[in-house]
Nucleic acid binder design. Structure first.
Length: 579
RNA sequence: CGGUGAUUAGCGCAGUCCGGUAGCGCAUCUGGUUUGGGACCAGAGGGUCGCAGGUUCGAAUCCUGCAUCACCGACCA
């Protein structure tokens, strides 16, 4: 490709709206342009990268035995009503009507469509297992799109769905997909971790996320330094090895006027936050009339409630809902900030770490007062101990091996065992050997193709721009001719080398603009092309060309006649897994 | 959805408090000088000041409403 005939679209200045480095560089390098909040055009350079990622994903999916299909973006609402998600999915599901007032949705995911296909096309258990995938546009009307394509509303996703006669077969395909994902992200040059994950809105009973480690990530992941335990913080657990101290002096009441937070109360009482109990009021499960009870959750004052784990406690609202201040005042007789388990009239859940506290302080259920020297059992006879808190840096690994560490991650893929959630709701059944019709076991497996690109940039950049992993680069080689208009030999050599590289099937961006060298170097480095060849008068005098490695910055001169072989060798270093 | 802020040339911004001929830098075009890391000089083009209404002799500026965008939070494969 000649730069003079291409749309480079690089920006010299930083766009005002971009807060994270990948968003900024994607705009500056001319990969994407925003057309509305969370909705982007992919410019030529960006699209080349997108195709690179797609092709690697496609190769590995095919290798793992999945079959490619393409499903519609616009889907009849009818299917979503059948699965029950038309009501359940919420405002993130974009709904629309056609001219005949029929209801449709923009697909945020494709379980409904694939299940409708499977129940019609799969006629015999002998066709199983079957794994179908597509690489296709999704639309989710996110509350707050941000960070460019990292959390867009319209995005490209590879989604695969597998169908099985039994759970053992599902487990096999789940493992195959897990392995395929590991190969994909390795080939893409990403530093990633598979972690145990919550199943969220998709449902199902077992799931792993593939997280790319990056400070800009929106997820917190937890892993052990003594084993291969790794989990999203939503799921992560720990072992509490503290021992509850013996109860001491009798419970007493202390005035804490104006104290509304744990820290304020602790300071007023002359205690550390970890000696004060944090009491939160949440809603229980709704009954058929929509009524619910209020439940108290107790944590150590310096620890955080984990809403996902708490929502899974039987009898609690899930997703977890907090009580309003009005509900709390009416029920407890005091406001948040003065709440505590002593004489609380409802169900009390105590986090496992908080259960190890003794002689602690807590709210008195009376505005402006706290209780001190409180002890479980003695002062609070009825309570349940559960796992309610977020794990913290340095906590023990739940397998007893090593300690936990927290890092930020970008979720680029997730694999789920769905079980029969959709096949039962939508009657996707096959006959078993006894002639009995049974719902198929299902799995689903997603990769955020557009998000992968942002994640790669978060991990691979410097002050000059993007440094693409070889496998994702929009071009393998940047060929820069210094002032070809002034020196005919430069022009001649550059043109010849360009033709040779093209002939070899190496993707070259040949900067033939006759710009000042600084402009061309800056663009090549901003776009992140891994190999930069410069043709200039200086080294031509010795019969040489200049080579620069974008990643290491190392330069070397190569004889003109050796350059094509040299580059062929360089381009071959793509870390393709041949397993 | 709550909080905060923004919207002026293709991009980045000033001007708004205190109403009076719409500006700066970059980019673009022309001419010249330069020529190995985002050149310099001279000139030119480019604007319904987000939209609608109001106040005023006069509105980018004041008032009202709306829209869009961003950031923080809540939420989220």
């Amino acid at each position: 490709m000649r730069t003079s005939r291409y749309l480079l679209s690089t920006l010299k200045e930083n766009p005002a709206e971009a807060a994270v480095v990948s968003h900024r560089l994607m705009l500056r390098a001319g990969l994407i342009r925003q057309i509305a909040s969370g909705i982007y055009t992919w410019l030529p350079t960006g699209l080349r990268v997108l195709h690179k990622v797609e092709n690697i994903v496609r190769e590995e999916m095919n290798r793992a035995g999945a079959i490619e299909v393409s499903m519609p973006v616009v889907q009849p609402a009818e299917l979503w009503k059948e699965s029950g998600r038309y009501e359940k999915y919420g405002p993130e599901l974009c709904r629309l009507k056609d001219r005949k007032h029929n209801e449709f949705v923009l697909g945020p995911t494709h379980e409904e469509v694939i299940t409708a296909i499977a129940r019609r096309e799969i006629k015999s258990a002998r066709q199983l297992p079957l794994n179908l995938y597509q690489i296709q546009t999704k639309f989710r009307d996110e509350i707050r799109p941000r960070f460019g394509v990292m959390r867009g509303r319209e995005f490209l996703m590879k989604d695969a769905y597998s169908f099985h006669i039994d759970h053992a077969s599902l487990e096999q395909t789940y493992q195959d997909m897990y392995d395929a994902y590991s190969r994909i992200f390795t080939r893409l040059g990403l530093d990633f971790r598979p972690v145990e994950a919550d199943t969220g809105a998709i449902g199902g009973n077992h799931s792993h996320e593939f997280q790319v480690l990056a400070d800009a990530g929106e997820d917190t992941i937890v892993f052990s330094d003594g084993s291969d335990y790794a989990a999203n913080i939503e799921m992560a657990e720990t072992i509490e090895n503290a021992v509850r101290p013996a109860a001491g002096a009798a419970m007493d009441k202390a005035a804490t006027p104006g104290c509304h937070t744990v820290d304020e109360a602790a300071q007023a009482l002359g205690l550390e936050a970890n000696s004060v109990l944090k009491s939160l009021i949440v809603r229980g499960e709704r009954d058929e009339n929509g009524k619910y009870e209020l439940i108290m959750c107790c944590l150590k004052g310096n620890q955080e409630l984990n809403e996902v784990k708490t929502g899974k406690v039987p009898g609690l609202s899930n997703p977890l809902e907090f009580a309003t201040d009005e509900e709390i005042a009416a029920y407890c007789g005091s406001h948040p900030g003065s709440l505590g388990p002593v004489n609380f009239k409802g169900r009390i859940l105590v986090d496992r770490a908080a259960d190890k506290m003794g002689n602690f302080a807590c709210g008195a259920n009376e505005d402006g007062y706290h209780l001190i020297n409180v002890n479980w059992d003695r002062d609070v006879p009825n309570y349940e101990v559960c796992d309610l808190r977020n794990v913290e840096e340095g906590d023990l690994s739940p397998d007893g091996k090593g300690h936990l560490h927290l890092r930020k991650g970008i979720e680029v893929g997730q694999v789920f065992m769905l079980g029969t959630k959709y096949s039962e709701a939508m009657q996707a059944v096959v006959m078993d050997e006894n002639g009995k019709s049974i719902p198929m076991e299902m799995g689903c497996y997603g990769i955020g193709v557009t998000r992968v690109i942002a994640a790669a940039i978060e991990q691979h950049h410097d002050e000059r721009g993007i440094i693409w992993p070889e496998s994702m680069a929009p071009f393998a080689v940047s060929l820069i001719a210094i002032k070809p208009g002034r020196c005919p030999q430069v022009h001649e050599v550059a043109e010849k080398l360009y033709a040779q590289l093209e002939e070899l099937g190496i993707e070259v961006l040949y900067d033939d603009r006759d710009e000042r060298p600084g402009v061309m170097f800056a663009d090549a480095e901003l776009i992140g092309i891994p190999h930069i060849i410069t043709v200039g008068e200086k080294s031509l005098a010795n019969g040489e060309l200049e080579y620069k490695d974008r990643r290491s910055g190392e330069k070397q001169n190569i004889k003109i006649e050796d350059m094509t072989a040299f580059i062929q060798q360089k381009v071959k270093t793509d870390p393709i897994i041949t397993a």
